[in-house]
Structures are given as C-alpha cells and as structure tokens.
C-alpha cells in the first residue's frame, strides 16, 4: 500500500514552493531532501540540538519537530534566506566569519537563525539576552564564546538596525 501524500504550498525564502508529501515527512527533510536547501542541518532529530532551526512565519522553530504538512500555507526562512543579496552574506553571517563564530559549522545554520530571531526583536541585546537566545542550540567546537562575540560584532556593525 502506498503512503498517502498531501499537497503543501509553502513560501520558502520568498519563493512559493509546492510539494506532495507523506504526512510523516518532517519540515527539515522537506527543505533538504525535496527542495535541495541543505543549509539547514539535521542533528538529533528530536528537538534537542537546534541545528535544524528555521524561521516559521518570522519566528525561530525547530524544523525537525514539525511535519511538513503542518507548514502548509506558512512562510519559512532558512539560513539560505538570510543572505542580503544573491550570494552576499548578511552582516550577521559575515560577523560569524570574521569573529570565528564557527569551527566545524554543523550548528551554524541553527545559531544564525536563533541570532537573527533575537536581532529581529532586540536590535541591541545584552550578553544575557544573547546567551538566552542561543540557549537551545548546541555547539561542540567553539565553547560558545566566539559565537556570542560574533553576535556582538554583528550588533556593533548593525548599529541599531536588525539586518
């Protein structure tokens, strides 16, 4: 018996995308395997590591903890959608490069989404707010200090703007 498929229409990084998905396909698997957006990483697949974070209607969520069919009609922004213009890193992304905010890079898409979610609501965050915002994202390389520093570097460069 073939598995029933459900038609979904999701705006991903500003582009309307359609897919026919089995109900059990998670949002992250849709993004990576069906839509080819492999910037979003799959870590633990049970909502602990934060690597799969994406924006759902402007708010950071874990894309492994929701089924793609549930996102029908929603707006999703992945790490690919953070770039300023085609191929140009955003201020936040550039700050992660310059501030050595990544080593292996596995957690980076989730960190960037979490940090962008913070800057969207809090353009001038305190250290505590930065640490709280990335509290749901695990990094096994940097010890977090450089990630916090990179976000602070972005805040300084943005000077009150969020992007």
């Amino acid at each position: 018996m073939s598995e029933r498929r459900y038609r979904v229409t999701i705006e991903v990084n500003g582009v309307e995308r359609q897919a026919e998905v089995p109900a059990r396909l998670t949002l992250v698997d849709l993004l990576r395997d069906e839509l080819g957006l492999t910037g979003t990483h799959v870590g633990c697949e049970h909502g602990v590591c934060g690597a799969c974070s994406v924006m759902l209607d402007g708010e950071p969520v874990r894309s492994c903890c929701m089924f793609a069919v549930q996102a029908d009609g929603s707006r999703v922004t992945t790490v690919e959608g953070l770039e300023q213009d085609a191929g140009k890193l955003s201020v936040l992304q550039q700050a992660f490069c310059d501030g050595h905010g990544l080593q292996c890079g596995y957690c980076t898409p989730g960190m960037l989404i979490a940090a962008q979610g913070l800057l969207d609501t809090t353009p001038d965050p305190t250290d505590a707010q930065i640490r709280d915002a990335i509290g749901g994202n695990l990094c096994r390389c940097t010890g977090y200090q450089q990630i916090v520093d990179s976000i602070k570097l972005a805040v300084a460069r943005l000077d009150g703007r969020s992007r």
Binding site: G47, G50, S53, L56, E59, P60, V61, R62, C65, M66, A114, G117, D132, A133, G135, G136, N137
Partner: peptide, 9 residues
C-alpha cells in the same frame, strides 16, 4: 520551559 524555538511552537 524549553527554549525560544520550542516555546514558539
């Protein structure tokens, strides 16, 4: 409770 990503859902 949880983190921003889990509380948003």
């Amino acid at each position: 409770v949880g983190h921003i990503q889990t509380r948003n859902r």
